[in-house]
């Protein structure tokens, strides 16, 4: 039986013009700078992906007679020490570097975010333990840990990036925990408990969506760090192994032969710098949006 309330007045109606679109997405993309950077990044990824279609050369097409050639109409960026077309390598290297970055950050997210959410929401013994683990990891210089793991398990992009991911995880843990803690103070979390939500639902449906924005910020910054880490490890010979090509291996190769040809060092380094710059800018833009997103 419905109770009639204030029967003489019609029920309150909302003002026209409400929209359903996600508030988070709108807020994050509010600034033009963010949108521009994101567009450039997407373009870069697309180009890297379709790269093989753009060049007539294969990644491992060696031309030992034509090695270390300067840029020409045949090879727009010249050739490396094996005579491979550098432009082709750039596409391949970017692909691998981006993949490596994804692997590292994905590892970091999977390790850090769920633990952080739970620690922020629940606290207690679990929180204490995970805080300690996180702080310990933070105190280790990232590359050292990566070196240790790669040394123990052998080289290759995958183990190296997993190691980097482990060292990046504490950042995500802290961000998730901090935001989860402050979000959990809101009464809608208590309300969710009072209607009988399980912890899983509370974390997944109520805490996480409110945490997404700061995590995306962290994601951007971490991606840049992961790219540099991969490049560094590959440069040291501990990352990608031949025949795989990454921006790091390209830099190593060019560096080794720098006295013979000066040019080949530039493409990989510029590209690394560009990618890191783009992700940093994206992170800045997202962070500004998150910070001012609360205020109208």
């Amino acid at each position: 039986m419905t109770a009639t309330i204030e029967a003489q007045r019609a029920p309150e109606a909302p003002l026209p013009g409400g929209r359903r679109r996600s508030r988070t997405a709108r807020m994050l993309l509010a600034e033009r700078r963010t949108r521009v950077v994101l567009a450039v990044l997407i373009a870069l990824v697309l180009v890297a992906l379709i790269g093989p279609l753009l060049t007539p050369y294969g990644t491992n097409e060696q031309d030992l007679l034509g090695r270390l050639q300067p840029p020409s109409s045949e090879h727009w960026l010249g050739t490396d020490s094996f005579g491979r077309d550098i432009l082709t390598l750039v596409f391949a290297g970017t692909r691998l570097s981006l993949f490596a970055g994804c692997l590292a950050v994905a590892t970091a997210v999977l390790l850090g975010v769920p633990a952080g959410l739970l620690a922020g929401y629940r606290g207690g013994a679990f929180g204490v333990v995970s805080n300690t683990v996180s702080d310990t990891l933070l105190s280790l210089p990232p590359l050292i840990l990566a070196l240790a793991i790669v040394g123990a398990y052998g080289g290759g992009v995958v183990p190296a990036m997993l190691a980097v991911g482990v060292t990046l995880a504490p950042r995500f843990y802290r961000v998730s925990r901090g935001v989860a803690q402050s979000v959990s103070k809101n009464s809608f979390i208590e309300s969710a408990r009072s209607i009988g939500c399980t912890t899983g639902r509370i974390l997944g449906r109520h805490v996480f969506p409110n945490v997404v924005a700061p995590i995306l910020v962290q994601f951007s910054f971490s991606f840049g760090l992961a790219i540099i880490a991969e490049a560094s490890l590959s440069f040291l010979g501990l990352g990608a192994e031949p025949p795989a090509v990454s921006l790091g291996t390209m830099a190593r190769d060019a560096f080794t032969h720098i006295r013979e040809a000066a040019f080949p060092i530039f493409p990989p380094c510029i590209l690394i710098a560009l990618i890191v710059f783009l992700f940093s800018s994206l992170g800045d833009g997202l962070r500004d949006a998150v910070v001012s997103g609360g205020r109208r």
Binding site: R20, N186, S187, S191, S194, C197
Partner: peptide, 27 residues
């Protein structure tokens, strides 16, 4: 059930009104 003091923070800002109202039924 419980009704809380601060109406502005007792509903999840990422859920529509209808979803919030029906959430107990869903759960």
């Amino acid at each position: 059930q419980m009704v809380f003091q601060d109406p502005f923070s007792s509903l999840d800002p990422t859920m529509t009104i209808a979803d919030s109202v029906a959430e107990p039924l869903l759960v």
